[in-house]
Every structure is written in structure tokens, then in C-alpha cells.
Design a protein around this nucleic acid. Structure first.
Lengths: 332, 332
DNA sequence: TTGTACGCGTTATCAT
DNA sequence: ATGATAACGCGTACAA
């Protein structure tokens, strides 16, 4: 391996001068600069980031803690888009992303591991957070996506508003018997969407029987199926259902079809997320779109500011959602 | 920050002993081990990976070079599953994944950057590779996914076989006028799938007019649309079409429907990949499934062996594909 | 079994 | 403008 010592020897300058050239320091002659740069090129020198990190205490890496509880990991249709956007933003400032291994059983150690790696900051991408507190009590700059954490920054969609938008739309279409397939209430996003649902129905003067709100679990296709089965088994099934996640909504649609009913003619369905899939299914799914691009970008900005000490106090960024009308809902 | 010196001071042992305890070296007394471990716990010591990497020349990081030419980056439905599987495998051996920034314009520098970071190995996940040669000529252990590179290891599906399977199936269903929407021929996977198509049709004694093979670009939905439009414009349109990618196939299906035709009654469509979407669309897409899980796992094994010097010579691993019958194809 | 001392490649302080 | 030299935190010959 070639080091600054090699460059120093080749150019007959000291390592100090070499280092200064490499880091664009002011006090170096043009001549020195030229010679050094040339030697760098000729010898194919590449700086060693470990040594630099050791000396500067700055790694230019951002640790990524990814949703694990869904099994799919980084193949998650929503989170992968968010993190891609996040990556694009931090790349602008030369940060790399470190996806840390989490096979160490105890969650306690993933935070330790991040410290071990010396990452400059951490982004936690998950809707569920047992270990959240560890991060917030630490000194590692951290930003959470999809869940607010006390004493830490977070970025998430306006979930409540999304729930309200869905109900308003359905109500406007003439629906009165509106059901809700909710996410498990251990997730902040799920709770908020349900809250929006309840708020809006109340606002409209609707009385929703409690069987109309059913737990669909962790936003999975299967969870949506099971929930919809329950809904169809009711004495008075709903004419419309707001499903808290798109994958879950697809499961629900499937069950409706299997029961010999049609979407949206018999039952209207509206989802949440707008994953890539949604516009391709039949019927194309009406849904509440989360702005993944903006979520990723905003969380990057927040984290970078924290890392650079520009924002001392924590803050939450709430990203607007948007109703995407497709063909899974119709007037009554 | 607390270092081994702090532990040494607290336990009244030397840093050597501390280091040995931390690394499970043989020659340490139980007593020393106990005291050190306790101090580690009390002082909340976390080893510094940069220092360790600097001293051992081993980073326990694997660099990931991801497909960029499709725009979606890590949100790619196929690659994200592969890399997730890869991650699971390397995690077993305590490696972390480093997704490096690539905003530096010239591709030349992404390889430099990897060296700078001191990663122990590199996995290149893309079907297109202008810069492939750089890796193969370097000393960095590298494994390519989806494209074979001379003097380097690679893992990819049996694309040719996939093309043949598709044709055989269609032929068995009675189809004779079989078209092919191919991927751009700059991609190895595309070339192979087309080769399989040609081989099989020839085998069956079919003569395929050259307008039946149309370039759909880089496996995109839009590319599939455009290609299908061309196919439908033909004097004698095909009764079946083998599309080299699922997203592309969905675009094709869409166009067929828009033309007032039905899938599969009027035109049968078979895709390639089996992305999560495929089973949910209407009709559920018959396709050639790539074993993403195995591809990821195998490439990890290959790379790890290379890193550990267990396999000196390069090798390619070809992963079997599988026909998944759903409802987008029917007998003539 | 334990400890001393040096090296890993850089940055940074302080002279010159 | 340039250069010695001391950190940064850890691993490891070598000695004791």
C-alpha cells in the first residue's frame, strides 16, 4: 500500500506538506502542490479512511438501522424508497451508508455496534421501536423515520390527516358504512391513521360500530386478508373500507373478489402508502400517498444539521400526504 | 471516549492483557479476564473499529456497488431482494455493508473510493457494467451479480435456460406465433434470455420473423409498453409473447388490454423475474422465477471464500430458474 | 501469565 | 512555506 510517506519520499517534501496539499490547506506553494498531485497520480495513492477517521474522529459514514420485523428487510417497498432518497441527499455531502449487521440477538448491541463503527449519525427506519430509547439517550445524532421519539428528531407522514382524507373522500362518495382495517396499535403510524379515521367519522356524524375497526397486524397482505374476512362475515358489512396500508389493502381486495363481490361496485377500498404496485393492480388502487422522496430527503437534512451542530434542539418534520384517486372507490 | 488504556488503568493490568481478553486470546488468567470484562461493562467501553482496522488491515466491511442506471437504486424490486439475502449471509460472519456514494461523476472513482474505505470485498449488483474491468484488474475480492466478468467471480441465473423454458411452455400450449420483447443487448442477461428464446424456437422448428423480436430497453414498464405497441402493429401479431422482465411484461399486458384484447385469451404473456408484484396483478403473471434468495446467498459465499483466501481461482455460479405458472398464458 | 514498545496512516500543533 | 513530532486507539512481536 502506498502512503503519504511514499509521496513525501518521491516528492522530497515532508508528510506535512503532502497532507496539506491533499486537504487543500492554504499555505502551500503551487510548485509543491503540483509535484505532490503528480506523485499521487503516478503512484496510485489512495488515502486510508481508517487512519483519517482515527485522527479526526469523523468517519463520513451514516449508520442505517433498518426495519427487521417484517422479514423483508431492505426489500421493503416503502422503506427502500425512503432510504434511497435519503442516500441521494447525503451523497451530496460525501457520506456513505453503513448497514450494520444485527444478528447479535440482543438489540442492545446494535447501538453499541454503531458506536464501535464510529458513524457520524444514525437513521432509524422502522415503524416499531423497542430499542428507540437507547438512541435518544445516547450522544449519537439520530433521526427516526416513521415514529416520533422523545428527545430525538423524527420525520413521518401526516398519518392522521391521511386517515381523515380517506374518510372524507369515501363520505363524499356517499358511503356511510365505512370500515377500517388498522395496523397493529404498537405502531405510531397505525395509531395515527386510526385516529384520523375516528376523528373524521365523528366529524361527519357517523357512528361506526366497533366491529368495523379491525386489526390487520403489521401491514401485511395476509393480515389484510384475515381482517377482510372478518369484515365480510359481519351481519351488515361495510360498503367501503379504509385500509391502513397498500399491501394490506391488496389482501383485502383479493378476499372481496374471492367472495364473489366486486371492487369498487360492491365495496370501495382505499389504501395507504402508494407503493409502486398499487397503480398496476386491478382495479388500480385509490390510496393515500406518502411522499417517500421528501421523507428521505428531509430526514437527511435533519440529520446532517444535527451532525454539523446546526440544530441543537430536536424537531419533528411532518410530511403532507396526498389522496391519489384511482379506481378502487366509487360512488354509492 | 473510553479506550483500552482506561480499562488497563482501572484494572491495573497492561493494555496487552486487556487487548488479549477482548480478543479471546488463550494466555490470560481467569482472574484477569473477569476483572477486565467487568471494567469494560462499568466504563461502557466500546472498541474503536477504525483503530482496529488500521492495525489489522481488516475492516469487516463489504462494499456494495448498486445498480444506478435504472434510477430507482436500492428500491429495485429484484436487486433489493438479492442484496437482502446477501446481507443475511454475510451477517453470519459479522460483516457490515457499506453502500458507497457515487456522486463523484467519473465511475473511475467509485473503485478508488472502495479502496479508500478499505473494504474487505466488493459485491457489484448491476446488469450493466462499464467499469467492470477496473474491479477485475484490482486486488479487491469482488463478486458480480447478474453479469460474468473475465477474471472475476459472478453469480447469475440460468438466463438462457429461462428463455427456453418460456418458449417450451408456450409451444406446449399450442402457440406457434411467439414473439419476444427483449432487454437491451448491452446487458448480459438480456442477451442470454434472447439466446434461449432463439435456441428453443429453432429446436421446435419454428421460424420467427425478425419483427417478432423487439428491443424493450432496460426492463422498464415503459419499454414494455412501447415494444408491445410495435408488436400489435404488425400485420400478423403473435399469439404469445415472452417478455424478458416482469415490469416490462406488465407494460405489455397493459397495452394489450388498452387495445381491447384480453390476456391470456387473445395473447399469452410470460415474464421473467417473478417480482413480488407479479402474483398480484390481473391476470397473475406467469413468469420465469429467479431465485433471488439463492443468488444473494451464493454470491456471499463466493465472496467470503475469496476474502478468506479459500478459493484462489474465480468461478461463476449459475443459479437455476423455474417456471411459475399463473394465469397470463392459455392454450391456443 | 503479563508488560514494553513499536507500527498502522493520518491529522494537527508548534517550530523554523 | 515547510518540517519534526506527537497524538488517535489498537494489535502484536518480543522480552520478562
Amino acid at each position: 500500500m502506498t502512503t503519504i510517506y511514499d509521496i513525501a519520499k518521491a516528492t522530497e517534501y515532508s508528510i506535512t506538506t503532502v497532507s496539506k496539499v491533499l486537504n487543500n490547506y492554504p499555505n502551500v506553494s503551487e510548485k509543491a502542490k503540483k509535484k505532490v498531485l503528480q506523485a499521487v497520480e503516478e503512484l496510485g495513492y489512495t488515502p486510508n479512511s481508517s487512519a483519517r477517521t482515527l485522527a479526526t474522529n469523523k468517519s463520513w459514514m451514516i449508520g442505517v438501522v433498518f426495519a427487521e420485523h417484517l422479514g423483508v428487510g431492505m426489500a421493503h417497498p416503502f422503506f427502500s424508497e425512503v432510504i434511497e432518497s435519503f442516500k441521494k441527499q447525503v451523497e451530496l455531502y460525501d457520506y456513505d451508508l453503513l448497514f450494520v449487521s444485527r444478528n447479535m440477538g440482543l438489540q442492545k448491541r446494535t447501538y453499541k455496534h454503531l458506536k464501535h463503527r464510529g458513524v457520524d449519525g444514525v437513521v432509524v427506519v422502522q415503524s416499531l421501536g423497542e430499542e428507540a430509547i437507547e438512541y435518544s439517550t445516547s450522544k449519537l445524532p439520530t433521526v427516526f423515520i416513521d415514529m416520533p421519539i422523545e428527545k430525538s428528531s423524527a420525520v413521518y407522514s401526516d398519518n392522521k390527516q391521511g386517515g381523515m382524507l380517506a374518510v372524507d373522500y369515501l363520505y363524499g362518495l356517499g358511503h356511510r358504512k365505512i370500515a377500517h382495517i388498522a395496523g397493529r396499535d404498537t405502531m405510531f403510524t397505525a395509531v395515527e391513521r386510526t385516529r384520523g379515521f375516528k376523528l373524521a367519522t365523528r366529524e361527519k356524524g357517523l357512528t361506526i360500530p366497533e366491529q368495523y375497526i379491525v386489526d390487520g397486524g403489521y401491514y401485511s397482505y395476509e393480515g389484510g386478508r384475515e381482517a377482510m374476512v372478518r369484515l365480510l362475515g359481519l351481519e351488515a358489512p361495510p360498503t367501503a373500507v379504509f385500509v391502513a396500508g397498500d399491501e394490506m389493502a391488496l389482501g383485502a381486495v383479493k378476499v372481496i373478489k374471492e367472495a364473489g363481490l366486486r371492487v369498487p361496485e360492491d365495496i370501495s377500498v382505499i389504501g395507504f402508502d402508494d407503493i409502486p404496485l398499487s397503480k398496476h393492480v386491478d382495479p388500480p388502487l385509490t390510496t393515500i400517498r406518502q411522499d417517500k422522496q421528501l421523507i428521505g430527503q428531509q430526514s437527511a437534512v435533519l440529520l446532517l444539521d444535527k451532525i454539523n451542530g446546526l440544530s441543537k434542539n430536536n424537531q419533528d418534520k411532518i410530511v403532507p400526504v396526498q389522496l391519489i384517486k384511482r379506481n378502487s372507490c366509487s360512488a354509492l
